[in-house]
Each structure stands twice: as structure tokens, then as C-alpha cells.
């Protein structure tokens, strides 16, 4: 297997941004405009015009913050998995020409989505400061929860990328699963509105544990549930281990298929 090259990953990440906005007058500035527009929609449209409120909270911005801290990480998670699922097919011209480490192609996608996530959070934190939000030490956990989330995304992305080479329909299946997964996770709604039977199943949803952790530290000024986080950390690494072991076993076939 070729070495995982930091230079290659960085070049691909830069190219990903330049290709996305190639030919446009504003270029990479669009990378800042998109998150700003999304945040405007979450805060002004959902929070102000539609009057979204959190149960038990009188703060007019509480729902906007609840929505933003759930949606921004979800976009990074969802895009990382969906883009990873076709990365070997999309980059087959590179793979066939140079001896590139295939997992590094997934690293560049995760890195690219992380940069978009950071840009979105710069605007989110600017909004929080402007509205007089009280910052607390629990927020120091924010990057680590995001890191865990991206490890899970990497593991699932590697699994789907490997299998999509052999079964191309999986690309559509991944898209449908992510869409269902989004609505099964309390990101735009609160979990308390769900029926009891759904709440019992919800605790087995990894995205719920992650989203709930963001909500607890940002909105409810509380720590994430320790037991849930430790179990999820173990599960995310187990998925990563299985995905990587499976990839190693099938790597030769993947290259032959491409």
C-alpha cells in the first residue's frame, strides 16, 4: 500500500475548493457566503419569522442556536459520508495513474468538510457573541465531539466507498439512508415531542448521541452523557477498524475493478 501522503491530501483539499467554485468571479469567497446564508436561514427564517421556540425557554434565540449547533455538524457528517461513498469512482483517473493510498482520498474529503464546518462556526460564534451568549468551559468539548463524529463518518465512508466500487447502486442507498437518518435524529425538532416507543429506540442512534451532546453543551449548559459518549467512542473505532480491515482485504480487487 502506498504511504498516506500529507502533501497529496492537502493538494486534493485545495483543489476541491478551487474546483467547486472554478470559473466564478468571487472564487473561494463563495465558501464563506454559503455558510453565512445557511446560518441566516436557521436564525432569521426559522427562529424569527417562523417563531420557533424551545419548550421551557423564553430566550428568542434558543431555538436558532439549537438548530444551528445540530445542523452545521450534521452537514459535515452527512456530506463526508455521501461524498466518500463515490470517491474511488470519482478519482479513478488519479488512482489508475499514480500509486496513491486510497484512504487518503477519504481524508481529503473529511478535511474539506471540516474546513467548511470551521467557516460556518466562525459565523455561528460571531452570532453568539453578538447576542450576549454566556460561554462556558463545557464548550471546550465541542471540537472533540466533532472529531469523534468525523471518525464515525470516516469509518462509514470507507465502508461505503469500498462496497460502491462493486455495487454502484449503493451510492443511491447511502443518500436515502442519510435522508432518513436526518429525520430520525432530533436536529430540527426536540426529542420530547416523540412517542415513548420512538424515544426508546432513539438512544441506539449514534447521530442522536452526538447531536444531543452538542445541544447539552451549547443550549442546556450541561456535560454530554459520559456513558453514551464512551460507548459511542468504542463503536466508532470498531466501525473504523472493521472498515479498514475490510478495505485492506479487498484493496487489490478495488484497484482491479477501477
Amino acid at each position: 500500500m502506498a504511504a498516506l501522503s500529507a502533501n497529496l491530501i492537502w493538494d486534493l483539499t485545495k483543489r476541491d475548493f478551487s474546483e467547486r467554485f472554478a470559473g466564478s468571479v468571487l472564487g473561494s469567497v463563495w465558501a464563506f457566503i454559503w455558510p453565512l446564508v445557511n446560518l441566516f436561514i436557521y436564525i432569521v427564517i426559522f427562529g424569527k419569522f417562523m417563531g420557533g421556540r424551545l419548550p421551557g425557554s423564553s430566550d428568542i434565540y434558543a431555538y436558532s442556536i439549537y438548530l444551528s449547533v445540530g445542523l452545521i455538524p450534521w452537514m459535515a457528517f452527512s456530506n463526508s459520508i455521501s461524498r466518500s461513498s463515490t470517491v474511488f469512482l470519482d478519482k479513478k483517473n488519479i488512482i489508475s495513474k499514480i500509486d496513491v493510498s486510497l484512504p487518503s482520498l477519504l481524508v481529503f474529503i473529511n478535511l474539506s468538510e471540516t474546513i467548511t464546518f470551521i467557516i460556518s462556526n466562525v459565523f455561528l460564534f460571531a452570532f453568539l457573541i453578538a447576542t450576549g451568549y454566556e460561554f462556558n468551559t463545557k464548550l471546550l468539548l465541542f471540537p472533540f465531539i466533532f472529531y469523534l463524529q468525523q471518525i464515525l463518518a470516516f469509518g462509514l465512508g470507507l465502508l461505503s466507498a469500498t462496497l460502491t466500487v462493486f455495487l454502484r447502486d449503493l451510492k443511491e442507498v447511502v443518500g436515502i439512508i442519510l435522508q432518513l437518518w436526518f429525520w430520525f435524529t432530533p436536529i430540527v425538532y426536540v426529542s420530547s415531542i416523540l412517542p415513548d416507543v420512538v424515544k426508546k429506540v432513539l438512544v441506539y442512534n449514534p447521530a442522536f448521541i452526538i447531536t444531543e451532546s452538542y445541544h447539552r453543551i451549547f443550549v442546556f449548559d450541561d456535560y454530554p452523557v459520559i456513558a453514551s459518549m464512551i460507548i459511542l467512542t468504542a463503536i466508532a473505532h470498531f466501525i473504523l477498524f472493521v472498515s479498514y480491515a475490510m478495505f485492506r482485504a479487498l484493496e487489490k480487487d478495488v484497484r482491479d475493478f477501477l
Partner: peptide, 19 residues
Amino acid sequence: YLMMLYNWLYLTGIFLMFP
């Protein structure tokens, strides 16, 4: 695989001890 193990221990340590 070793990096995965370290990564797991690293994050577990943070989530366990930080609160």
C-alpha cells in the same frame, strides 16, 4: 491499527475525565 487504538484511548480519556 495502533493509531486507531491510541485515538480510542485518547477520546475515551477526554470524555471520561473532563466532566
